[in-house]
Computed example of a mutant assay.
Amino acid sequence: MKVAARREATPGNTASGPHRHAGAVAAAHLARSSRAARFAHRARRALVALATLGAASLACAANTEELTGTLKKIHDDGVVTLGVREASIPFSYFDGKQTVGYSQTIALQIVDEIRKTLGMPQLRVHEVTVTSSNRTPMLLNNQIDLECGSTTHTVERENAVAFSNSFFQYAVRMIVRKSSGISDFTDLAGKTVVTTASTSDERLLRRLNADRHLNLRITAARDHAEAFAALKEDRAVAFVMDEPIVYGFKSTDPRPGDFVVTGTPLGYEVYACMFRKGDEPLRKLVNGVIARGQISGDAERLYKQWFTQPIPPHGINLNFPLSEQNRALFAHPNDRALD
């Protein structure tokens, strides 16, 4: 009888005491199962996030471990050190507030690319002033990481350092006083001539002197500004240098009409960025920046900004139009020396 009563009560009396207890137990179990499921889901998400973060960290560590040469040095130091010039107008020069210029702009574009490559948006830039005489030793001694000023790429210099794609082609000429009557290099025979020490121009000038027996008295100044000062002070009758450099000095002088740029070119050369030999990752990065700028048309716009428009600090215009040689260079980026 008791068994039958329980059987009758089972289907229809679910609200009875024992069954209420069973339902509560079941509900509690379901609740615990739901909470456990939610916890497990959150745990899985957390584990996925940790795994993703771990993978990213491992990838970053792997990438860091893969860095070599200058890029590794820059990453570890947290700073990129640029060699800059004081008076290579309009390429790299101090305008009274900061270093500016055509090639300085290219250098800073390269720095931006280094920031992206290393994932270091806050990468600092440290500038070190260099001269024609000390720029190579400072690079080789790790005092600078990169120099994009007015350094000529020559075959001889390839023995010590490496060069990027060229960013400017020019002729080697001279600036003289208009009143001097000098129009070509043969007119310099027996006279004092100044150039800048440790430049390719000095080498060309000494070769000219020996080949043509001109008996020149050659003075090698510490930098371009000192060389031009020697001309202005009549300690030399001519300053032999890269054509755009002497145009820069002529244009920024208080009496530009007193001077003239003249002479059959001693040769044609190219400027490039300079860095340490055997640094293939940096070479690819730098060349990529220069080539993209040239092919895209940015290099020509940059040229116009610095050579055909007023430049700081006094708003002087060099009026030095883009040459066909530079136009051809921009169309076909390359890293060939011309000597």
Rank of each mutant, 00 (worst) to 15 (best):
F167M: 05
F167S: 09
V172D: 07
M174F: 03
M174I: 02
R177I: 00
R177W: 06
R177Y: 12
R177N: 10
G181V: 05
I182A: 06
F185D: 08
A189R: 15
A189P: 10
T192K: 11
T192H: 12
V194Y: 07
T196L: 02
A197E: 12
A197F: 11
S198P: 13
S198Q: 14
T199V: 02
T199Y: 04
E202M: 12
E202P: 08
L204R: 12
R207P: 08
R207F: 10
N209L: 02
D211E: 15
D211K: 14
H213S: 15
I218G: 11
I218Y: 01
I218S: 07
R222N: 14
R222K: 15
A227C: 06
A227R: 01
A229D: 15
K232A: 15
E233H: 14
D234I: 07
A238F: 08
I245Q: 05
Y247N: 14
Y247G: 10
F249C: 00
K250I: 00
P254F: 04
G257Q: 15
D258E: 15
V260N: 01
V260Q: 05
V261L: 02
T262L: 03
T264H: 15
P265L: 14
G267N: 00
A272M: 08
K277H: 07
K277D: 02
G278S: 13
D279Q: 04
D279N: 05
P281I: 00
L285F: 08
L285H: 03
V286Y: 00
N287L: 00
V289R: 07
V289I: 07
G293R: 05
I295H: 15
G297I: 08
A299W: 13
E300P: 10
K304P: 01
W306T: 02
F307A: 14
F307E: 09
T308K: 10
Q309Y: 09
I311H: 13
I311T: 13
